[in-house]
Design a protein around this nucleic acid. Structure first.
Lengths: 251, 251
DNA sequence: ATCATCCATTCGTTGGTACAAATCCATCGA
DNA sequence: TCGATGGATTTGTACCAACGAATGGATGAT
């Protein structure tokens, strides 16, 4: 059996990884500078940078000029997707995201953009829209304590919501689901699809993602009593900030 | 407002990204060689490699000597976590993963390792194990059509399963959940936690992951009628091969 | 005391070179 | 016909050099 000699940069990367996982460098700690690592391992600066690039891609560290290479820390916000189907707590009815965030003592806010569009193929098919039919989309960029947190684009059949509050710009304090109810199309069943991938350029900018942060894509299709899709919500969740929880079965 | 000039390698990366997304290079297609890109954009090979490295980290392409840079294709296998709680289809009772895979006309297989261990802190706390209590873990590496597909490590309280089939090596054709039932500790409620991150080195090797592939971590804690945790299952799912689906609400 | 400025440090980008490793494919030999 | 061999191509690793950009912290001015 041939044992491949790991390349130099792999060796350096392994050593750094070990040091981080073993706690030699805790969250917030600065790794040795590139120059330091270069002389310590007796390799070129390029090789050091290759090694550190690995850790960046793994989401372990961040780099910035003069600040150095810093070990990241992460803390996730819990999401309970199924609670949106349950009756809201008594008192002020509240949109689900805002409610969850304020529960944790943090400050939610959002930017909303409302458009009428010809939806992309996958959205149209999930909404079961015929050929050229339009959809109203509420594109939201949500913030927690002023930092971009996630995006949520909700698509509704244009025919259904054109005359409602949903098609008009601005916040809907009580949540779009409440409006759907009032229109006689309450969601009584949902299908959630969850997967993950690396973000594209636009997402990196919009969500101010650091390198090495995957995103979880979370698509919820809501159906009314006639089993007609009335809402397709596409959320893009930076993986280091979100934990999705489902509770199934009887209590 | 200052408009930062994107660096050269960013420009090259953007151009390649655009070409891929627009379909100029479909899945399986080979991008121009580094030499070709170098002369076409009038930059150094270093710069070209930096650009392509971005696409690799985004999971868009793979590289190999002589094969070139190839556009990846992905096709996900659908998972229905909640089906494990429903009564199995009539006929041969079957472990959930094997059943789902064979349903798609593909060939499941797995390697199982059964150990009695002192579980890590997070597992112990989910299992609500006191201090030094042990757990039995069934570590599985699962394959589809001979390719590594995902891992599933299931932890059980040692006191509960020590005398059962679960603590013995080898396959349990009917699934561990069935054995728990027979022990009088059927799971009647589960809590699923889902998040994503970049894989660590061990996972890259074990699952033969390509660069730029995040993993979805999927943790299910199962409780019996007394609301005692009886099973903690930790699955690591390569993101490009898995789609998780939940269906909630009334039909 | 407070604020603006400057400098040194550290990572970021880009150029270059050389050789190694992997593998496709054509060619040759049995 | 089929398998072994070897050459050419393409990416992988490693080194060096130079300058750009960002910023923490010291210094100096008000």
């Amino acid at each position: 059996m041939k044992v491949a000699r790991p390349s130099l940069y792999q060796q350096v990367a392994s050593e750094l990884r070990r040091a981080i996982y073993s706690g030699d460098y805790g969250p917030g700690a600065q790794l040795p500078t590139e120059e330091e690592l270069r002389s310590r391992h007796g390799v070129s600066r390029n090789t050091v940078r290759l090694a550190v690039a690995e850790l960046v891609n793994e989401g372990l560290v961040t780099r910035a000029p003069r600040r150095g290479t810093i070990v990241r820390e992460r803390r996730a916000l819990l999401m309970h997707p199924q609670r949106e189907l349950e009756p809201q707590p008594t008192g002020v009815p509240r949109e689900a995201f805002a409610y969850a965030v304020s529960q944790e003592g943090r400050q939610p806010s959002q930017l909303i953009e409302v458009l009428t569009v010809k939806p992309a193929e996958d959205i149209a098919s999930r909404l079961e829209l015929d050929d050229g039919k339009l959809a109203v989309v509420r594109r939201r960029l949500r913030f927690v304590d002023g930092q971009p947190y996630n995006t949520n684009d909700s698509y509704f059949p244009h025919d259904l919501v054109a005359e409602s509050e949903i098609a008009r710009p601005g916040d809907i304090g009580r949540g779009a689901n409440r409006v759907l109810e009032e229109l006689g199309h309450a969601q009584i069943r949902v299908v959630d699809d969850i997967w993950a991938r690396m973000p594209n350029q636009a997402e990196v900018e919009r969500l101010q993602l650091e390198l090495g942060t995957p995103v979880v894509v979370y698509v919820r299709v809501g159906y009314d009593r006639e089993d007609t899709p009335v809402r397709v919500a596409v959320s893009v969740l930076p993986a280091d900030k979100h934990l999705i929880r489902y509770e199934l079965g009887s209590r």
